[in-house]
Amino acid sequence: MTIDATDRRLINATQSGLPLTPEPFAEIASWLGLTEDEVIDRLSAMQARGVIRRIALAPNHYALGVTANGMSVWDVADDQAETLGAKVGALDYVSHCYLRPRALPDWPYNLFAMIHGRDRAEVEAKRKEIAALLGDACRAREILYSTRILKKTGLRLKEGS
């Protein structure tokens, strides 16, 4: 998944969003001294390699009333963790879903899924749905609610590569 210096310039130019004009890729090309075809080809190649997941709008879930969230964590049998993790990640109320190492004895959980809802009751209801989906493969579970944001900074790329 290597990206070159031109890809990096494209990333920096589009990190805060696409220009809202009929020909956004031609506009970006004009900023960077590239052709529109080159911008389209490079963005398409990055999407094919997974560097770009998609070009889409990011809803502000707070503004849309989806204000509650909880980090649900699950101890799932290792031989089923990949299959079940894929099912949990595909749920439309789960925004992040990962397998991570356990930290025994403090932390027996290997599957992490961030659940979103309009209020905590909805988050708890969704959590029950996930528990049902995991069934007997899940041996222990918890949910951690955030009580305070202590720091939040955007991820910034360094210039050049």
Binding site: I3, R8, Q15, S16, G50, A63
Partner: peptide
């Protein structure tokens, strides 16, 4: 469509419109 997206951004219903990059893929 362009006007609607701009409006959604102005009122704060969306935070951005553009590529979603995989931070790890970028190094």
């Amino acid at each position: 469509l362009i006007d609607r997206i701009a409006h959604l951004r102005e009122i704060g219903a969306i935070t951005r419109f553009g590529p979603f990059y995989d931070a790890e893929a970028m190094g």
